[in-house]
Design a protein around this nucleic acid. Structure first.
Length: 158
DNA sequence: GCCAACGTTGGC
DNA sequence: GCCAACGTTGGC
């Protein structure tokens, strides 16, 4: 199976690329959307490339790159009453929610802001550039992944 | 802080 | 099963 590419959103106040860099790897918990879960559960494999996107940020944009290092397994925060992500409808014996682990790959010194993604004709059709796109995990085409990587590294050089 | 977009819930 | 109400996401 060919390597796949993804974009995953996080609010940097909650968990940022800097946090991932410090920790090395981290479970991507708290996903409570069926479409996003299905991508993790059904399609993500170890080694897949991930654009780490900072949302609700100034500005929002792609802050770096991560890699899937563990395939989908149950998200235990769903049945932890103390967790922000607690889901009272979730049965631990038949887990509804899953997560993968990501490991740090690369941090752009300056994030590639959303408006530059939108303005780049090579990224036409990329999901994150579409208005009203709230899905927090999105599949990304290889050509788009490579172009965003190029943009991030170019900026990093100054 | 505003509000458009969109997913979920619940009454019927 | 429809759809209005509600809650959340997330850019601006």
């Amino acid at each position: 199976m060919a390597k796949k590419y993804w974009l995953m959103k996080s609010e940097p106040d909650a968990f940022s690329i800097e946090d991932l860099e410090k920790k090395g790897s981290e479970p991507w918990d708290g996903i409570r959307n069926y479409q996003a879960r299905n991508f993790m559960r059904d399609d993500m494999k170890v080694g897949d490339g991930v654009l780490f996107y900072h949302s609700n940020s100034k500005p929002s944009g792609v802050a770096g790159v991560a890699r899937v290092c563990k395939e989908a397994y149950p998200d235990h925060t769903a049945w932890d009453p103390d967790s922000h992500y607690f889901d009272p409808k979730c049965d631990p014996k038949n887990p509804t929610w899953m997560m993968v682990d990501l490991e740090f790959v690369e941090r752009f010194s300056v994030a590639v802001p959303l408006n530059e993604l939108k303005e780049n004709p090579k990224l036409e059709g990329m999901m994150v550039t579409k208005r009203g796109m709230r899905l927090s995990i999105q599949p990304v085409e290889k050509k788009h992944f490579d172009e965003v990587l190029r943009m991030g590294r170019k900026r990093s050089k100054g």
